[in-house]
Design a protein around this nucleic acid. Structure first.
Lengths: 252, 252
DNA sequence: CTTCACTACTTCTCTAGAGATGTAGAAGCG
DNA sequence: CGCTTCTACATCTCTAGAGAAGTAGTGAAG
């Protein structure tokens, strides 16, 4: 080659590290444009593919975002806070300052798309809801947006036997939402379990959440239990990880 | 060029999509080797860099893992479960099947590295602990491994005024850990708040957690409050997202 | 004043090569 | 049998080019 690098690491890593340091030092603030392919080719005297690799590292880290035809820009992080508790009026919680700053809570989530239909229960869902394999379930898909940008995909599953003929099977479920309707059916949810994990999004999620590359998704699977301890609803949520901070509280 | 692609999307995306489909169809199971650069170059008649780009897509998604000199392999996902509640004997919780399968709970976490020192409080930590800027804090860093692989980095911050001279400032804190020691000081934690977010790891985290590319980290910041509602400890955790499912429960 | 075509610039995609470096199994040696 | 060395093969890094495609600003036409 060719590729004999001065230090001990590849050129593209070195270039990426220098840019990263410059960003952390505040030389390039959020939203600001930073040197592109052509600039890096000139200043570091490397080939286009090498300069692109360096920028690719920062994109994969979610630090910067490339806009075709325009340039490469520093990304910013202004999440909203989602509380597991305290949405249900559990006053006294959450005292003390938070670790991560979140935006003014003024901004509100808006439902963007709603789609309701009946279908076969996926095996995992059937297991959680304690239904026979292949049982029918009501599937409610929603997309939430924040200031126009989609941030959350939610899919609820409820046993078709339980909810057919109720407003739950219609896009608009009426005041109080599906939990109020479940209460009217004598199956009011009283306990919730949320399971959380994170991974990189698949192509479908990238499209529906309009995710830039380098941003993982957080998966929250919420199961609602009624007073008898039976699972009445499973809500499968996919969140844009750059838009959310989740918060939970519990006692010792 | 050159780059006139049959369909409508770039060649490397098409190749990646085909491989992804093959994996999802079970043609390549977890841990199995799949066609590498040279194979793709031959079967699709593309240049090396193009074949690499296709594999790079799947790596960024965390679907596959490349081992230099060996090949490209399908990754598997076998996380462990971490409960926010119920570790503290809250029986009756967590009934019903879970959405994501987790491994036999037999495997145990082992502390790998411990490091304790006193230092200046980072501004954010000082804010949460309600200390003056630049106050001294005791900083406890730990790394946990699961079957030899590091999965969690934890950093605890406690006010130096509170804990100096106690076993908390030593690597081994004695039976019951730091919470038992805090109780002896009359500052027993009774409430916890956990804030969760996710992002791609930085270079340091990649190294310390031995993360393959395409795996995000989950950040959990836990604040422990005593009976007076004062924050006594902040624990900053960085988890390998492929190793964990977090679980929380709460009542309506 | 608005709209549209043009243009300079940007990132994106791809080619065809080649040396560097790590891996795993085979061959050989003590 | 156990260890080392060799070797074929794998991914990794990088070069120097070039056409495709999107963006934003300018200036002319309506």
């Amino acid at each position: 080659m060719s590729s004999r690098n001065a230090g001990r690491q590849p050129k593209y890593q070195r270039i990426a590290a220098e840019l990263r340091a410059a960003i952390e030092a505040g030389e390039y603030g959020p939203g600001e444009r930073l040197p592109g392919e052509n600039d890096l080719m000139a200043t570091y005297e490397v080939a286009r593919m090498t300069a692109r690799q360096a920028l690719g590292v920062l994109q994969a880290e979610g630090v910067v975002e490339a806009r075709k035809g325009a340039g490469v820009f520093v990304r910013d992080f202004r999440p909203i806070r989602r509380r597991g508790i305290e949405r249900l009026a559990h006053a006294g919680w959450g005292e003390g300052r938070s670790v991560w700053a979140t935006d003014a809570e003024g901004r509100e989530l808006a439902v963007d798309l709603v789609e309701v239909h009946e279908g076969d229960a996926p095996p995992v869902i059937a297991g959680v809801l304690d239904l026979a394999d292949g049982s029918r379930v009501c599937i409610r898909r929603r997309r939430y947006t924040l200031d126009g940008k989609p941030v959350l995909l939610a899919t609820s599953y409820l046993a078709a036997d339980l909810v057919s003929g109720t407003p739950i099977t219609r896009p608009d479920t009426g005041p109080g939402g599906i939990y109020a309707r479940l209460a009217e059916l004598g199956r009011k949810p009283v306990r919730f379990r949320e399971e959380i994990r994170s991974r990189m999004p698949n192509a479908d999620e990238v499209e529906r959440l309009e995710l830039p590359s380098g941003v993982p998704v957080v998966l929250v699977a919420r199961t609602a239990f009624d007073a008898e301890g039976a699972a009445v609803e499973v809500n499968d949520m996919v969140l844009d990880s750059s838009a959310y901070v989740l918060e939970y509280g519990f006692e010792a």
